[in-house]
Design a protein around this nucleic acid. Structure first.
Lengths: 232, 232
DNA sequence: GTCCTTACGCTACGACCCGTAGCGTAACTG
DNA sequence: CAGTTACGCTACGGGTCGTAGCGTAAGGAC
């Protein structure tokens, strides 16, 4: 995963050590937890990994790329359990995003690499491919399920469907990120429930505090997730 | 604004140069545009401002604090024009947020300082006070107006009202930030309109592409904004 | 096995930035 | 005037960066 090898025609010579790869990525996450993004150095990671500093530079151009790869694997955990209703699925996705963002590694790293990516298109693509795509997949999956269940109308126009999916994705991911990192307050199941209601039923219903009510998509279910206690 | 002086009892001695303050903050924004967050150095800012490096350290503890102050003033521009309807106000807010985030100074700086703030509580407070508060004020203002217009029900419980306001704020700001910086796609008036519809009417209505429709609070108005063309 | 090729560990290096100390000078107060 | 604080400047130790150079290790081709 580290070194992009579009086609690997069995090059000759000594192969890259897979153990070193794993050790480096693990050491990077460790260092993120201990030192945070800004104080993480290539030398420190190399030492922790029991590897020469030059070995890092042979695989990654710098701190940015290394950290993206180190954090990306954490997003493999993301899955969308089929809970039987759209609001339940949304809540599950929100809580999963939040759980990942609560981890100290991702907390300090994600925003930092995104900030860097504003001036580095290659880095932006790397983030998109290895992190954002995994998240967006959940949204697409949940949307598809909801359409099969009849909770959402199926959109015949592919272009419109894609644009709507992008919008929903930005809203969900953006809200969770903002809540977690900017407002710096926890995304507990209560917040997830209220956010889901807002997303599905809109401001009027959510502000009034009433249940989504007798209309539209999110009605034929007992709110799905039912665990008022417990943080995260 | 730079040096926190809770009470300033007319200290004796040579006063801080206001020109230097202005020059430094301006130089910081310049440097952000030219070099970006990661390559911005205190020495470079000092040189651009025509000021000794030690002068910077007399006022700011480091890069983080300096950049927050340098960018914060840009958020003073934010205003909420009264456009007569909730959706119109929301769109205006969204487009204003977006316009600020499109600027290269804020683009590279905001996420970076937020990332740093995950390990620095004082910095987080500084960001909250000087940047986030300005944004959130717009949301509170817009909400109040909508309630006066009867577009939203007034919430008697202050605690619930505050929680809802926080939720809405995270959704709006988060979505705009995510769209702009992570998805790296422009927030044009079309996106703003679709986002507003989603926020006000929920996923079902927005996905179907129909108007918010005959229900709830936000109906006694001709959708307010009526300007299909014109980007940002 | 013998070449060939590539990866690895290690050392050393110039370049840069950090944050501070020290000093003489400038500006404002009483 | 003296007292106090800010400023510009220089210089410094300490740290990180990213690379070059070298000898060695580990595979493939024959």
């Amino acid at each position: 995963m580290p070194s992009r090898t579009p086609t690997e025609p069995t090059r000759s010579g000594r192969p890259r050590s897979a153990e070193a790869d794993a050790a480096i990525l693990e050491a990077t996450r460790e260092s993120l937890v201990d030192l945070g993004w800004s104080k993480l150095t290539m030398g420190d990671v190399a030492t922790r990994a029991g590897v020469a500093k030059t070995t890092l530079y042979r695989r990654w151009a710098g701190k940015n790329e290394l950290v993206v790869d180190a954090v990306a694997v954490l997003f493999d955990e993301l899955e969308l359990p089929d809970l039987g209703s759209l609001p339940a699925d949304v809540e599950a996705v929100v809580l999963q995003f939040a759980a990942l963002l609560e981890r100290p590694e991702t907390k300090t790293a994600l925003m930092a690499v995104v900030a860097e990516s504003t001036r580095d298109e290659a880095l932006r693509d790397r983030i998109r491919d290895s992190i954002v795509a995994r998240q967006k997949h959940l949204v697409l999956q949940g949307r598809e399920r909801a359409q099969l269940r009849g909770e959402l109308p199926s959109e015949p126009d592919a272009v419109v469907a894609a644009r709507t999916a992008d919008l929903i994705f930005d809203v969900i991911a953006g809200a969770v990120v903002h809540r977690t990192l900017v407002s710096a307050e926890p995304v507990d199941s209560d917040w997830a429930r209220r956010f889901t209601m807002l997303l599905l039923s809109g401001l009027g219903a959510a502000a009034a505090g009433r249940q989504p009510g007798a209309r539209g998509p999110g009605e034929s279910r007992p709110t799905g997730v039912q665990k008022p206690g417990g943080s995260v």
